[in-house]
Nucleic acid binder design. Structure first.
Lengths: 139, 139
DNA sequence: TCGAAAGCGGAAGTCGTTTTCACCCCGGCG
DNA sequence: CGCCGGGGTGAAAACGACTTCCGCTTTCGA
């Protein structure tokens, strides 16, 4: 949302990747290869390594979120935003957002339970998405 | 705990892997390589492929659980048991159990929200474990 | 005993990710 | 105006976990 914190430390290429993720908007989940394709379509001479470095930096800066759904074979990226869970369909592999987050009171209590500090919580659901539910095969 | 459901469809090698996971008990999280090492120590002629096949089958049968913590670079396996969450320390990488599960009422409501079926929920926490919290460096 | 089927293990292959390394652009400085 | 110097860049190789392949061995029923 706020473009100001990224003026200083990001190169032009890194900014491009950031913009691509932002433009995809909430609910879209992009693999590294997708990001590379999109970046290439705007700047054909860009290399995979540059996109990779951009993603790594943006992730470390907290500007984009990385999700690794259980059962998926790669990571996905989305704009940083309010906490929410993800649902992955076992059949078609599609990942979608779910409006659910673990309350801070719970994480606080659990942090006390383990005696450490909890920085982050991720929730993933697996199952059959709406569309795949209609096709009642289990192949 | 209950050895009966595994007599029929499991070969001797697969049973060995199952027993190894069970014997490690609750709270232990074993990577594929760990399982292979442990299996080798009891049956030196066993091959990695056999352990891999055993793990795959046991996982599909629901006899063992596979977890892929966010930030980890491999999957871990543990005995199947009551639902619980996992905590992974960002510093030392250690994974430990956390007594938390998403209520069935919540998953039911969320399944309705997405219009599909939710078969499974996984919760992962990241942060600093008790031991690493004492070492106040952020390296 | 024989033959089919399942199990097995070594090795190679797959694939997403990460690192390496040399080149280039772009600034300041002499 | 030309010489550095350092971050940025991109092609390619390396890496590592995971998966598959293929031929050999064991098991089991006829």
């Amino acid at each position: 949302m706020n473009p100001s914190p990224l003026q200083a430390p990001l190169s032009k290429s890194h900014r491009l990747v950031y913009e691509i993720v932002q433009e995809q908007g909430i609910g879209r989940h992009l693999a590294m290869a997708d990001l590379f394709s999109l970046a290439q379509s705007r700047q054909p001479r860009i290399g995979f390594t540059t996109v990779y470095r951009a993603v790594t930096k943006l992730r470390d800066l907290g500007l984009i979120s990385e999700i690794t759904p259980h059962g998926a074979e790669r990571a996905y990226y989305e704009p940083a935003g309010p906490a929410h869970a993800h649902f992955r369909c076992d059949r078609c592999g599609d990942v979608q957002d779910v409006d659910f987050a673990i309350p801070a009171t719970v994480t606080t209590a659990l942090a006390a339970q383990i005696g450490g500090a909890i920085a982050n919580a991720t929730v993933h659901f697996r199952g059959r998405c709406a569309e795949c539910s209609r096709l009642e095969d289990s192949a």
